[in-house]
């Protein structure tokens, strides 16, 4: 199950865990990504909390958590290779995994179809 937020984060639910990243659209908008400030493991977050910061040559952008939970894993590959997000924003370029999630919070997010429509409306 995959969902998207208006702020262009994606979230993938498998079992009781959520994997979070930024969408391919957002990655393209940012351009060459130069640094990712990752969240801290074991920290609790609620919807809208800042998970980290993504810096590119031309912008720095906060990553907001689309749902609440506890950070159980971060993608440390991004420390040495932030460009992974440009190459594969929605797979290898994931940012972190959350546990302790409440699936009811997913109701406020968009399905892949709805997100595609949302992107069209931005053009």
């Amino acid at each position: 199950m995959k969902y998207y937020s208006e702020a262009h984060e994606w979230i993938m639910i498998e079992d009781d865990e959520a994997t979070i990243g930024i969408s391919e659209y957002a990655a393209a908008e940012l351009g060459d990504i130069t640094y990712v400030e990752l969240p801290v493991e074991d920290n609790d977050v609620i919807v809208g909390d800042t998970l980290g910061v993504i810096e590119s040559v031309k912008a720095a952008s906060d990553v907001y958590s689309p749902i609440g939970g506890t950070i159980i894993e971060v993608n440390s590959d991004l420390e040495d290779n932030p460009g992974l997000i440009n190459e594969s924003a929605e797979k290898a370029g994931w940012i972190c995994k959350l546990g302790n999630i409440d699936i009811l919070e997913l109701d406020n997010l968009m399905t892949p179809d709805a997100y595609a429509k949302h992107l069209k409306s931005l053009d």
Partner: peptide, 9 residues
């Protein structure tokens, strides 16, 4: 490392 500065953020 200028992207966190005021003219952008």
């Amino acid at each position: 490392l200028q992207t966190r500065e005021q003219h952008i953020r």
